[in-house]
């Protein structure tokens, strides 16, 4: 794109795509913004009077909102800690040469291909069920006693399920980062007198910093909008214990038929996601600079 001519030509070529994308984004967003200012209830769709910011006021002052916000952040943080920590450990393991490593690598990636609803149902009915679930049976056998996950620790249960689904992603990205670490660097550190732990801390971990950042950023985007796992396991309960913002928006719109309130909630969710993204990029974004 050196000359003026190629620049304008490039603009013309890109225009259709850009315009299509713009419409694709603008139309739903402006419709949401528009609905969020209406008293629009599906019980009475004929009358949708303009009510200004009342929907926002109701949504933000709803005690359920703060709970949902807290749950959302706890879910994101919990899953991030497990997947990044576990991903680093698994990547270190899979980077070793041992018999059958290719098959193990394949198995580790497998959860990523299981649909969220299926994964959640499998965990709910086959793993975490206190009577016949595998975990309950195991805990009974050990002598701790089965836990009724979805009544006693529902959010933890959801975090475990979602972390299980995202662990392969983290592992895969971190493994490729690990494999690009030059052997000579490790050997140089070894000759410099660094033990295995020092090599991990001073050489391996800084080398993986960029990959860890990518994992955190991408996962945060997806984890802010977790819905299916909650829907098929706890339906946001018991009480509000597993209701996050997306689930709260859903329950506004389709359980309480309040389209206006749900739209306001959707806009709030977008704003919140941007706030989180802003702080994340401030916090760890410098790792992405070359």
């Amino acid at each position: 794109m050196a000359t003026l001519q190629t620049k304008s030509a490039a603009r013309m070529m890109m225009a259709p795509a850009v315009i299509a994308l713009l419409i694709w984004m603008i139309v739903p967003l402006s419709l949401t913004l528009y609905f969020s200012t209406l008293n629009y209830n599906l019980f009475n769709p004929a009358e949708t009077p303009f009510i200004g910011l009342m929907n926002y006021k109701f949504f933000l002052s709803d005690p359920a909102f703060l709970t949902a916000l807290r749950n959302t952040l706890a879910l994101v943080a919990g899953v991030l800690v497990i997947t990044v920590g576990g991903g680093i450990l698994l990547a270190l393991l899979l980077d070793q040469e041992f018999y059958g490593v290719t098959i193990v690598r394949l198995l580790v990636i497998a959860p990523f291909f299981v649909m969220p609803t299926v994964a959640a149902l499998v965990w709910k009915n086959m793993m975490m069920n206190p009577v016949y679930g595998v975990i309950g049976q195991f805990l009974n056998w050990v002598g701790i006693g089965a836990i009724d996950w979805f009544s006693n620790a529902p959010l933890t249960a959801i975090i475990i399920i979602v972390a299980w689904q995202w662990l392969p992603f983290a592992t895969l990205i971190l493994l490729t980062a690990l494999q690009s670490l030059s052997e000579e660097q490790k050997e140089a550190a070894e000759m410099d007198g660094a033990g295995a732990l020092s090599i991990f801390w001073y050489i391996t971990l800084p080398h993986m910093a960029r990959a860890i950042t990518v994992v955190i950023l991408i996962q945060t985007i997806f984890l802010l909008s977790i819905f299916a796992e909650i829907y098929v396991t706890t339906s946001g309960g018991p009480g509000l214990q597993t209701t996050n913002i997306p689930y709260l928006v859903y329950s506004q719109a389709l359980l309480q038929f309040d389209v206006g309130g749900a739209s306001a909630g959707g806009v709030v969710a977008v704003v919140l996601a941007n706030i989180v993204a802003f702080f994340l990029v401030r916090l760890i974004g410098k790792n992405l600079d070359a």
Binding site: S182, E184, Q185, E187, A188, M191, P206
Partner: peptide, 21 residues
């Protein structure tokens, strides 16, 4: 003996400097 215990230093062909330091 482990490399570190031999009290030798090595300069590698690719230098093997630690890029983030």
């Amino acid at each position: 003996l482990a490399p570190a215990k031999r009290r030798l230093s090595m300069v590698f062909q690719s230098y093997a400097l630690y890029p983030h330091m």
